[in-house]
Simulated scan of single mutants.
Amino acid sequence: MAHTVIQVPVPELESITQRLERPPVCPHITLLGPFVDRRDVNEDLVDTLRALLAQVRPFDFMLSAVGRFGSEVTYLAPEPADPFIRLTNMLAAAFPKWPPYGGAFEEIIPHLSIGAALTSAEEEAVRGPLPISSTADEVTLTWWSEDAAEELARFPLHL
C-alpha cells in the first residue's frame, strides 16, 4: 500500500544494496510511517515539519549490526539508536494520529530494512562492508509505493 514516510536517507548504503536481487528503492531509517496520505501533504504540513526539525542537529551513527524481525525481514541497526528514537517520539507527539509503524508495535526499534528472505550470498554482501559510518544531516518526507519512492520535501538538519 502506498504511503508517506518521514525518514533519514542513508545514501552510503546504495552501492551495497544494489547487489541484492530486490534492492530497497531508497535506503533509509524510518522515523514516522506510515504517515499522511499524499493528498494531505501541503504547505502547512511542510512548514510544521520544518519548524519541528529546525531544532534538530545532525548526528553521526554507524550501521554495524545485522538483525531480523521474525524469520524474514533483515535489517541494519543504527548505533546509537537513541537519536532516532528521540526523533520518532518528537514526531509522534506532534502528530498523534500517526503512531510509529501505524501503532503495530509498542517498541521503537530504529532500523534500515534490507529485505525479506535474503539468500546467504546476499546477507554476506551486506555484512562484508560493515561497519558503515553515516551522518543524519537531513530528513525527508517521501512517498512510497510498491516499487518507487518520491521525495516530497527535504529538511536539512542545522549545525
Rank of each mutant, 00 (worst) to 15 (best):
A92E: 14
G128N: 11
F84N: 12
N42G: 14
R68K: 15
P99D: 06
I29N: 08
V139H: 09
I132R: 10
S113V: 08
D47G: 11
I109H: 13
P156Y: 04
E72P: 01
V8C: 07
F95G: 03
P83D: 04
L118A: 00
E122A: 02
E123Q: 14
E146G: 13
L159G: 12
K97N: 15
E21S: 11
L45A: 04
I132W: 06
T74E: 04
R57N: 09
R57L: 10
P23Y: 07
R86C: 02
H158Y: 14
T135D: 04
P100H: 13
A153Y: 06
Y75N: 03
A104W: 04
S134I: 05
M62E: 12
P9C: 02
I109F: 01
Q55A: 13
E43H: 09
I16D: 01
V73S: 14
R127P: 12
N89L: 15
L63N: 04
I16S: 03
L63W: 01
S133C: 09
Q55H: 13
P78G: 08
H158N: 13
P100V: 08
V66I: 15
M1Q: 10
P58L: 04
P129L: 06
V10M: 06
L141A: 04
S64K: 12
A2M: 05
R22A: 10
P23D: 05
D82K: 15
L13Y: 01
T74C: 08
T119C: 05
V139C: 03
F105N: 11
R86S: 14
E123R: 12
F95Y: 11
T48E: 09
A94F: 08
V25C: 05
V41Q: 04
T119S: 13
P100D: 06
A54W: 11
P34S: 05
H3P: 08
L76G: 08
D82S: 15
P24Q: 12
S133V: 02
P110S: 05
H111S: 00
A81G: 01
L32I: 03
G103W: 00
T48Y: 02
V56K: 07
P131S: 09
E138H: 12
L13N: 05
P80M: 07
D44A: 14
M62Q: 14
E150K: 09
P83L: 11
S71Y: 14
S120R: 15
V56Q: 14
T74F: 07
V126L: 02
P27M: 00
L76A: 07
F69C: 02
L45W: 00
S145V: 07
R57T: 11
I114Q: 04
G128H: 14
T140F: 07
A65R: 15
L13I: 11
H111I: 01
M62A: 12
L20D: 03
R86M: 10
S64L: 10
L141P: 08
D82I: 11
I108C: 07
R57K: 14
C26E: 15
M90S: 06
